[in-house]
Design a protein around this nucleic acid. Sequence first.
DNA 1: AATGAATGAGAATTCATTCAT
DNA 2: TATGAATGAATTCTCATTCAT
Lengths: 210, 210, 210, 210
Amino acid sequence: MSNKKFSRNKEEKINIIYDTFFKLILQRGYSKTSTNHVAESADLSIGTIYKYFPKGKEDIIRKYFEESMETFFDSHNLSKMNDENVRDFLYHFVLDLFKNHKENEGYNLAFRSAIQSDKELHNAYKAKVINFFKDTLHRVRKVNENMKKIPENQLIEVFVFMYNLVNALIYHHLALMKLFDTDDKFVEYLSNLVVFSLNYYLKRDNVASM
Amino acid sequence: MSNKKFSRNKEEKINIIYDTFFKLILQRGYSKTSTNHVAESADLSIGTIYKYFPKGKEDIIRKYFEESMETFFDSHNLSKMNDENVRDFLYHFVLDLFKNHKENEGYNLAFRSAIQSDKELHNAYKAKVINFFKDTLHRVRKVNENMKKIPENQLIEVFVFMYNLVNALIYHHLALMKLFDTDDKFVEYLSNLVVFSLNYYLKRDNVASM
Amino acid sequence: MSNKKFSRNKEEKINIIYDTFFKLILQRGYSKTSTNHVAESADLSIGTIYKYFPKGKEDIIRKYFEESMETFFDSHNLSKMNDENVRDFLYHFVLDLFKNHKENEGYNLAFRSAIQSDKELHNAYKAKVINFFKDTLHRVRKVNENMKKIPENQLIEVFVFMYNLVNALIYHHLALMKLFDTDDKFVEYLSNLVVFSLNYYLKRDNVASM
Amino acid sequence: MSNKKFSRNKEEKINIIYDTFFKLILQRGYSKTSTNHVAESADLSIGTIYKYFPKGKEDIIRKYFEESMETFFDSHNLSKMNDENVRDFLYHFVLDLFKNHKENEGYNLAFRSAIQSDKELHNAYKAKVINFFKDTLHRVRKVNENMKKIPENQLIEVFVFMYNLVNALIYHHLALMKLFDTDDKFVEYLSNLVVFSLNYYLKRDNVASM
DNA sequence: AATGAATGAGAATTCATTCAT
DNA sequence: TATGAATGAATTCTCATTCAT
């Protein structure tokens, strides 16, 4: 008979830890969620948590961050964007980002908390965002005529800016205080805001640095 | 020794506590900053901190928030806003909010961390913001002809929305990743964004709830 | 009414911690004595122990070492040694060292354990011993004609050697396995050994370095 | 695959465990060296360590001590000692003991740490030393005329004393603070010390008990 | 026979809070 | 009013040991 307590499923255990941790953060907040709470709530031993995440809470966040960041972007084929579908494309970009936040609400709370006490994570995050857009847009410009018109550096800055803008507002809307009374209205507003901001942004000579 | 001298000491101590607390939060993060650290770093006894803030950390956050919000809005005579000076008014509103954040960098971080750690505080914050605008705008509408045209409820929602929007982006710009390479550009963008958003917002039938 | 739990007597508390810690080490060994045991056995809160010894066990040892080293040597007026009373002087030196070990049996066990897991402490110990003899003998040579005959460096080396030799054997006798069946016989043997070793040592050209 | 091959693997693994354990003890100290560290560092599974040493750390110490003691004394044919070669014999006895310590530096540290952590182990050690000399000297006295002259009990006590004395000083010299600046000088001193001590010891009526 | 994931008691450490002075 | 020693529950983290595979 298989003893559940001694079952081996590394992947599963790690996912249970992630899920439980982020669930608890949503319920109690980051600083009031302890590794013991996670262990108890996930019905795992505290030792198991420290086996997979030797530095505790911060490790959970850091590793989740490393594992999950890519996933979101992989699903977006930026190269499909052209003059005709810009608004639609941006709408879906915003919508997907929003859905992603919604599905990982706890993670976002945790991540922003962690970033404040972990400069390294903070820098890793910044680098990750920039590098993602660097790589992606470099590839996109090879196949998309519209994008070729815009200098690569500027293109990167525009996307990084847009990504940050959208994230900031989604986070505030979800975690702190709703900006619109329904998510639909909010997403619609966001996509309009993005169009406005891109226009505004592109008219300027100098753009965002990080 | 006069009473005044004593009350000045009291105020000074409270300010030292605020300063030290926010300084430490910036250095180590909210959840890693303890009241004991604050006492030690501020060269005060822990007893003194508990005298002024009987519930500790959360009290500090809560009281500072209340005080700073009042202070900020006292300096802004919303009743002076009219059709002609809306853009200018909003620009200064945004600018002052930004300056306020900059001068009290820790406050924003701390506040958001605290809110994430404590649902109660979170709810108190939301109520506080709404009530603040309720009270303020109620008074403003009595003397400002322009504001009278807009239904009170809608007016409140607009200001709450605007306040949140601006806060969200300032926080992201200061704490996570700059949205523009200089603060000036960022503030200018923000005030344009506010105008855009207000227009957008006011065209809709339903507005933000919290 | 004075609440014992909230009594303030720093000195007393620290001494209770020392006593309890070393007592427990004698009973259970260093690695099996925890700070929690100490707290419980001394009827103090664990917080109190960490107040005075923030790094726990190693701090207790380190601080005790620093405080106690001086004390022993202060009681020995090396300058009174002369050609006539060498043997007698050495006998009393050995005897006092032995008594000191006996009175602080736990400390010695603890100290040697700690030294093995703390290179820094180890080096501090070595430096302390050498510096003590450097300082002391420098002063002694000014007033003692006999000692003036021996070059200062060599004199230091001789005393360091002697001190180590005696400590090594006392420790073994007390902590591991008795070398003689009574303490008296052991001390007598030790003082004879010291005389033998000093003669042996002084006949050599090169002497111990550390 | 032959049985021999298998048993060789077993022996190899045990040796790897010994080596790694003592290496780690030298690096981090006994109480900070865990069986898990040993397994990881030796690239073995923790299960394997518990297969060969069911009681963990203490078993490793205990078994190594037993094995090494036999090995050491096997190489020393005490029965070959006679009146003519006593000094030379003792010199080589001391020299070999020293070499043994040097080659297994960690063992000595580990062993003394372990003994301090565990009264049982301590008592086992004391018994082991005495029993070893009892057995060995009983056999030796049958074939060595010189030894027959000394009463068996006294002979045992002398060897136990000598063994402890030498061990104590070697330990101090290697682990704490050098007694002489070169190992050669130290060994020479030690063998002279042994002769002196044996003479001293044998002149007394009562000898060491344990 | 070998593995190493899993366990959970317990050690180390922190920190909000109390209260005698 | 101000202090800060003292508290001890809660948290983080380690480690000897077990056991399914």
